[in-house]
């Protein structure tokens, strides 16, 4: 890869943030993690990632945040050409039906994780989403087989017309 694919975590409660980052540990080598405590900070992070030519593969976002809420942030990001493809996951206990509908319809939310989460299921969601992302972006599946869903990636590899040389 000539650039990094980040995981962006947005969460205002420090303990929850720590728990999320701990559960993301095994991905960090391949997908560096950036964290933000609120939507405004997240916008800064997004901007600096864009400036360095990198991209975001997955956003794990809390809904209730000080200032702009998570769903609003995701909707705004959806219209961003460079980051519209990023997989978007709400990790929350308090998004009401209306907000959730907004997130699905306007931000193309990819998944909803209810707090408290179970680590195994959480990691499965992360793997599924990132696998979908790298396949959709047509990145070389081989670079991700060791960390993500290797069977799906092998299937993608099979469809990618590999040749001997």
């Amino acid at each position: 890869m000539d650039h990094q694919i980040y995981i962006l975590v947005i969460e205002d409660e420090l303990e929850v943030m720590d728990a999320l980052i701990k559960d993301l540990e095994e991905f960090e080598q391949t997908f560096p993690i950036e964290s933000a405590n609120n939507a405004e900070e997240a916008e800064q992070v997004v901007k600096s990632i864009a400036d360095s030519g990198d991209e975001i593969g997955l956003i794990l976002c809390d809904h209730v945040l000080p200032g702009k809420n998570g769903v609003e942030f995701l909707i705004e990001l959806e219209s961003d050409k460079k980051f519209g493809h990023a997989r978007k996951v709400l990790v929350t206990g308090q998004a009401g039906l209306e907000d959730t509908i907004q997130a699905i319809n306007k931000a193309h939310l990819d998944h909803y994780i209810a707090k408290p989460w179970n680590m195994e299921e959480f990691q499965k969601v992360v793997i599924d989403q990132l696998t979908g992302f790298v396949i959709e972006k047509k990145y070389n599946p081989m670079e991700f087989m060791a960390v993500l869903d290797s069977v799906r990636l092998a299937e993608a590899l099979r469809g990618s017309k590999l040749t001997d040389h």
Binding site: S150, V151, A154, L157, R158, S160, L162, T163, D164
Partner: peptide, 19 residues
């Protein structure tokens, strides 16, 4: 078939076994 395409296909067979 190409050795490479064959390998990619067979990986989809053996990876679930390995898991």
């Amino acid at each position: 078939m190409s050795n490479t395409a064959t390998t990619a296909m067979m990986m989809t067979v053996i990876l679930p076994i390995i898991a």
